[in-house]
């Protein structure tokens, strides 16, 4: 037995210790607030500074701008030209194109894999599948970007004959690889957390095991799967290195998935290094960051809320 030898400490030490721990616990909360404040602060001049607004205002970011007098107005992202234009539309399109393809690719594989692993796989099989997914999630995004840039892009171009090597499909698939582990893990958690008592009841009523899976477990776990998809989408929208390396980074307004794209995150990553501190361009990039932060914040919040509700529901049922 270990000997416990506690010396009595003063109450003040105890008080300070407790307050210090409490203070540390607030770091996460303070960090979230500071992130928002400091990013939003740098984008504020867009809203009030007339000099900055000459170049970039909310109006100019939303509506068409012409390159010069008499030219046809267009949506374009051209921050480095003599007459800089900061239309957000090409970036919005690019971001959602990439996220959409990522989801089309990752949802069937992630959810399918989770259903197999939780419903059909033997225990040994599951012990193979889980590490596979953990390995995939352990690959740094810069490595996925590297792979998409050097290998996947060439492969896809050879197979489908794309005009542009780096395009939305290439970036989307690589992005999907980063999203699959998120969708898989959350869906699998939800599927395995459905209480055994429910399944037993169905089995006792004469259902065969796969009927139990599809009429009982799957519907009960549906909110969890939905949350996995929502959180995966949040990741796909915010992911930077993969799209920066694999998407071609051309801000084009088009519906064609084989065109190059430029996303919010990649725009910030590519342009912030060269930008003049305090210029309109600098403010606009922080504004992009603010939009990205707010968007992913609400996506994550809704995903988490679904999960909390599901947990309460399932635990309530089990008791």
């Amino acid at each position: 037995m270990k000997k416990f030898n506690f010396k009595k400490k003063s109450k003040i030490g105890e008080y300070i210790g407790e307050k210090f721990i409490t203070l540390n616990a607030y770091v996460a909360l303070i960090a979230i607030l500071l992130i928002f404040i400091f990013i939003f602060k740098e984008s504020l001049p867009i809203f009030y500074d007339e000099f900055i607004q000459e170049e970039a205002s909310i109006d100019k970011m939303i509506f068409k701008q012409s390159f010069a007098e008499g030219r046809e107005p267009k949506f374009s992202w051209q921050p480095n030209s003599d007459n800089p234009r900061y239309s957000l539309l090409p970036l919005v399109i690019g971001t959602f194109k990439a996220a959409l393809i990522a989801m089309l690719f990752a949802v069937p594989l992630g959810v399918g894999g989770a259903i197999y692993s939780s419903q059909f796989a033997s225990k040994r099989m599951r012990e193979i599948i889980k590490p596979v997914i953990e390995l995939l999630s352990g690959i740094p995004s810069v490595v996925l970007g590297f792979f998409a840039l050097l290998v996947l892009a060439t492969f896809l171009q050879n197979v489908f004959g794309f005009t542009y090597r780096l395009n939305a499909i290439n970036a989307g698939i690589a992005l999907g690889l980063a999203v699959i582990p998120i969708i898989f893990t959350i869906s699998e958690d939800a599927l395995t957390s459905v209480p055994q008592s429910l399944k037993d009841a169905a089995l006792a009523l004469g259902a065969n095991p796969w009927q139990v899976s599809f009429t009982m477990t799957l519907p009960a776990a549906m909110p969890g799967i939905a949350a996995g998809i929502v959180l995966g989408f949040g990741r796909a929208v915010g992911e930077t290195m993969i799209v920066l390396m694999a998407s071609g980074n051309a801000a084009i307004v088009s519906a064609n998935l084989a065109d190059s794209i430029r996303t919010f995150s990649a725009t910030i990553a590519a342009e912030l290094a060269e930008v003049v501190f305090g210029s309109a361009h600098y403010n606009v990039l922080f504004f992009l960051g603010t939009l990205l932060f707010v968007f992913t914040f609400f996506i994550n919040l809704s995903g988490d809320m679904i999960l909390v509700k599901l947990k309460e529901k399932i635990q309530g049922k089990a008791s």
Binding site: I39, E239, T240, G289, I299
Partner: peptide, 14 residues
Amino acid sequence: NNLAGVPSIVFGLF
């Protein structure tokens, strides 16, 4: 939970 979901580029800006 939200800190875990903030895009990494936003951390860079921050």
